[in-house]
Design a protein around this nucleic acid. Structure first.
Lengths: 203, 203
DNA sequence: ACTAGACGATACATACTGTCTCGTCATTTC
DNA sequence: GAAATGACGAGACAGTATGTATCGTCTAGT
């Protein structure tokens, strides 16, 4: 979502500096510990104090690098999320399943209610916009995949790609966040099976 | 979700009591003000102090009737949610659209990120279970509607009802909560249009 | 050797939560 | 009416969180 080092700003050529540098171990430890704590005790009970203690740093050090708790949490999650291109094995049915399984993996972390809820709460307007963009970006490969299916004649030309993609995203988020259930391969296959394939309507 | 008066407990015959009674106006005002504040400033900034101030009661009065802030918020939202049966005009396509439009209305309140996020955060394990049950209950009519369609032959017998319902719920929640966009009638019609109607495959 | 600066420790102001106590006053029953 | 019941407001309080400021120390680069 955004830069890993909030303060460094622009230092394109990495001009060497005097004195000691920011400890990379501490940085990584903080993010790791934050993720652990989020899952263990839930957002409200993740305090700067607790993070500092378990990461083995002073609380001041946290405030030195992050403006507030929300920023720490945001970065802790952000550096675990990547976008992958849509697979292309020739079968929309198979590729869609692969893509959805992958999406489940991503959203199982971000969608964990203990994690996501805290984010949504503290994130404020701009943070929510970031999240929105992240999700959209993360879903683009699904749209690509569907359009490819249309081009190849596997799917009807008038398929509402947007509707399908949004319903897929919603499906996964709904199960993970609200039903707190990780959809199985079978569930996802059912979901894909709803698509109006031109060859052989049902499985 | 639960009882409107947390403390009254069991008083089946409403045995008359001496002295003054709990002010119904104050009670209603608190809930109303809480809803207002949730939308205005978001969960974290909704404090007991602010609620009390705007509702024109003492902070103590809040703690007299609710154990904590989460309880106030929960009740404030709960008394705005109801379950309605599935419509039945004879056409699954039309009925589904009606039902989805109605679902959007409900989830636009509960799904407002400012509201929902706070709930998820503070609600804890049991609260999330309540929410889960509420959503499931709220979605049951959709399943009924689809099964009716299958019985009447409008939809194939092997339709994965569960998958459709969950994807509908997810779709609406995703748009409302994450994209912060209220789906239009058109969008919902597209969604319904994805169903594999036996008569006339596409719209 | 010198020095910038990262880090830890500590103290601090502020804010919110939730508890407690007390005095006042409206309501309901006798 | 009169008395009792208890809802309410006001304020004090402890506990805990956030976020800021200051200082001394120690270390990695020049």
């Amino acid at each position: 979502m955004n830069a890993p080092t909030p303060q460094s700003g622009r230092t394109p050529a990495a001009r060497p500096r005097r004195g000691p540098h920011r400890s990379p171990e501490a940085h990584a430890a903080v993010l790791e510990v934050t993720r652990e704590l989020l899952e263990e005790v839930g957002y409200p009970k993740v305090t700067m104090e607790r993070i500092a203690e378990r990461a083995g740093v002073a609380r001041m050090t946290l405030y030195r690098w992050w403006p507030n708790k929300a920023a720490v949490v945001r970065e802790a999650i952000a550096d675990r999320l990547t976008v992958r291109p849509a697979p292309d094995t020739g079968s929309v049915r198979d590729d869609a399943l692969t893509l959805l399984l992958d999406l489940v993996q991503t959203l199982t972390l971000i969608g964990n209610p203990r994690v996501m809820a805290g984010l949504l709460v503290e994130l404020g307007e701009s943070g929510r916009a970031q999240l929105r963009d992240f999700l959209s970006e993360r879903l683009e490969p699904a749209a690509v995949l569907l359009r490819r299916g249309i081009d190849r004649g596997e799917l009807p030309a008038d398929l509402k790609v947007r509707a399908v993609v949004d319903s897929w995203a919603g499906y996964v988020l709904y199960l993970v966040m609200f039903q707190e259930r990780k959809p199985a391969r079978r569930d996802l296959a059912d979901l894909v099976g709803l698509l109006p394939f031109r060859t052989d309507g049902t499985s």
